[in-house]
Structure formats: structure tokens, C-alpha cells
């Protein structure tokens, strides 16, 4: 009866195969590309900056890995690493969420900031961490980014920033919204000091982060196929019942509409950022 579908559970499998053991391949050895569906050796994927070797799909990478891929070896000094969120508006269950976000990401908050050199040019850098509450911006993310821009302004350094974010963090209520003003204020002052800010938008960059420092770069780069939007595609589909065009809100779409400067593959980013920094130093 059930030969034509996949076995539902182990018992069914045994019933069907008469308890013959088939050689098993450990799950973690291969990763399946969600774009081209092909299998990639997991080790190979890691060596290739988490880019699919078949189709070029960019898998998620964490913030530490991003820093490793971007900065000159041993040049990174982290700032404000101990800063941690508190439940500023007394939102129910927020402490628990923070705890599990820390476990999931091994970070204290959704952004890492610091000073480094890239291609020998000294600069300030921030990298958001998507595994920490979807990279949402609360008061600590706002404060760390603001401080970084202030430090960069003081020390006359360019800023390179990688964004990945679900937007403002609901659990910090209105104070998370205020971070949009706070960070953009610091970006504005940095810019008025005639200093360069390169924003690199990675998948996904949305909501309050798009509507603040992500879109405020002198130069805005993006990784291929990254979702970049203010309101997400699902929200738009739900509220307007419009049919969304294909590729809507992807990096390629934004490039075509004139909102980003260039799409750069992850394995080229370090090189491109380095050149841009050198052209401004």
C-alpha cells in the first residue's frame, strides 16, 4: 500500500526493507542548496565563504565569520563587546528571548563593532548578527552603532558596515524606533566630517534598519539575491493583495531601481571594499 511514498517513520522503513541496513551518510556531510537543490560538501562550502559552488547562492554566514573574511588578519579590535540588553520597557518574556538569542548566536547582541584594517586601511567596522533575534535593532544595537560612528568621527576613520536585520526590535517598543534617529544622527555627523561610509546590505535587510543607517551609506553594496526592503513581501502581499513581480525587493531589483551602487559576490567583497577604502584614503 505504501510503497509509492516515502516511509513515514522508522517502523515503516523497517517493515518495507525487512530490516536490511542501508549504508548511511551522515546528514552534516552534505548541505543542500535551497536555490539549485544540489548537494555540496559541507566542508567545501565553508572554504568557499558559504557560497554554493554550483549556482553561487549565498548561504547565511555569522558575524564572526564575516569579520574573518573581511578584515586583515589579526587586525580586529572589538569595542563594547560586553554591552548587553536589559528589558527597557518591561516587555513580557523578553529576558527569555535574549537568553536564547545569546545561546543561538554565541554573541551578546545583534551587532559586533570594532576597529580593524582592510587592505591596510584603518577603519571602523560593524557587522550585524542575524542569529541574534533576527538581527533586530534595540537600544544596544543602536548605541553600539552610534558609538562606532562617533569614534570613527573622532579618529577620522571610514566606516564599513554589514547589515542583516528583521528591523526594529518590538520588545523594546518606542525606544527601538528612536535608535533609527540616534544612529542616523551619528551617520550624518560622520558624513559632515567628510568621512566615507560603505554599507554592505546582506540577506535580509529590512524595516527600521533599511529605513535608517542601511540606506545612509555614501556607497551601498549588496550581496547577490539579498532581500532588501522596508515592508516585507509577505506583509505587502497580505495587506494589498497585489501580485508581487518576480525578484521583487531583491538586490538586483534595487540595483535596477537605482537604490544601491553595486552587487558584489561575497568572495569579491573584501577586494572591492579594500579598493574603495584606498580610493578615499
Amino acid at each position: 500500500m505504501f510503497q509509492f511514498r516515502k516511509p513515514r517513520n522508522e517502523l515503516e522503513l523497517i517493515l518495507r526493507n525487512g530490516n536490511k541496513r542501508t549504508p548511511s551518510i551522515p546528514d552534516e556531510m552534505f548541505t543542500y542548496c535551497p536555490s539549485c537543490k544540489k548537494a555540496i560538501l559541507t566542508d567545501e562550502l565553508a572554504d568557499n565563504a558559504n557560497i554554493c559552488s554550483h549556482c553561487g547562492y549565498h548561504f547565511y554566514i555569522n558575524a564572526r565569520m564575516r569579520i574573518h573574511l573581511t578584515v586583515d588578519k589579526d587586525s580586529f579590535t572589538e569595542l563594547d563587546s560586553e554591552m548587553q540588553s536589559i528589558n527597557v520597557i518591561g516587555f513580557p518574556g523578553y529576558e527569555m528571548k535574549l537568553q536564547s538569542a545569546k545561546l543561538a548566536s554565541s554573541e551578546n547582541e545583534a551587532v559586533i563593532t570594532g576597529i580593524c584594517t582592510i587592505a591596510g586601511v584603518r577603519c571602523a567596522i560593524f557587522v550585524m548578527e542575524g542569529k541574534f533575534m533576527m538581527g533586530s535593532m534595540g537600544t544596544v544595537v543602536g548605541e553600539k552603532i552610534t558609538r562606532l560612528f562617533e569614534t570613527a568621527t573622532e579618529q577620522k576613520l571610514p566606516v564599513v558596515g554589514f547589515t542583516v536585520s528583521g528591523g526594529a526590535r518590538m520588545q523594546e517598543g518606542i525606544l527601538s524606533l528612536m535608535q533609527m534617529a540616534k544612529t542616523n544622527g551619528a551617520v550624518s555627523r560622520h558624513g559632515k566630517s567628510r568621512l566615507l561610509y560603505i554599507a554592505v546590505l546582506t540577506n535580509p535587510t529590512t524595516g527600521g534598519v533599511t529605513a535608517s543607517f542601511a540606506m545612509a551609506g555614501d556607497i551601498i553594496l549588496s550581496e547577490p539575491d539579498a532581500l532588501i526592503c522596508f515592508a516585507g513581501p509577505r506583509v505587502i502581499a497580505q495587506t494589498t493583495s497585489q501580485k508581487l513581480p518576480s525578484g521583487f525587493q531583491k538586490a538586483e531589483f534595487l540595483l535596477q531601481k537605482g537604490f544601491i551602487d553595486a552587487i558584489v559576490r561575497r568572495d569579491e567583497l573584501r577586494n572591492v571594499i579594500g579598493k574603495l577604502l584606498m580610493m578615499h584614503s
Binding site: M180, A181, N184, A211, S212, A214, C229, F230, I236, F259
Partner: peptide
Amino acid sequence: YCGIGAEERGQGQAISENIMEMMD
């Protein structure tokens, strides 16, 4: 507004620019 037109004309960019310019 959230909709196709708003997004393709850069809702996020427009808001970001307003915030930044108003700050200064």
C-alpha cells in the same frame, strides 16, 4: 504605505534620508 510602488520608489531610503536631514 506598504505596497509595490512605495517599495520600488525607495520607502526605506526616503525615510532614512528624512531622519538624517532633519537631524541636521
